[in-house]
Amino acid sequence: MVNFEFIEHTADLGIRVKSKELEEIFKKSGEALISIIANIRPGVAKQRKIKVEGIDWPDLLINCLNELLFLFYTGNFIMVSCDISLNEKTGSKILEAGLKGDVFKPSQENIKREVKAATYHNLKIERDEKGRYVAEVIFDV
């Protein structure tokens, strides 16, 4: 069960994800994106390694989500689980992740909708009053 909320948007689709850990924000956002695209949970027969950079955490989040879309649209790879490490160096935030999942053939039964991209519109990673991270992302669908 993916832990996220939908944000209402007229033309597109938005998500809100909350967690005490920044790594979890990235993980949950990725899982939310996958659950928007497909309604299957394949096995974990395949693995992918990704390294993504951003100028700040929100930029890194968008770049990571678009990397997942790239893996899906070019190789039908659906992520099921991941190990994430986040690093920082001057002017740059870096995510390295080992992704587990599988390659599958999209069909009418297992596909929900096309997501074109994760956008920067109203993008947020903030702390709420309880000190948790809250991220909001709008997808172009």
């Binding site: 929100p58 519109h121 993008l123």
Partner: peptide
């Protein structure tokens, strides 16, 4: 193409001293 270009342009906002109400 849009994704690649936006990624680059988000980076050049500070280079060109452009301030906008929405990063998109």
């Amino acid at each position: 193409v849009c994704d690649d270009s936006l990624r680059e342009m988000v980076r050049c906002l500070s280079k060109y001293n452009i301030s906008l109400p929405d990063r998109q």
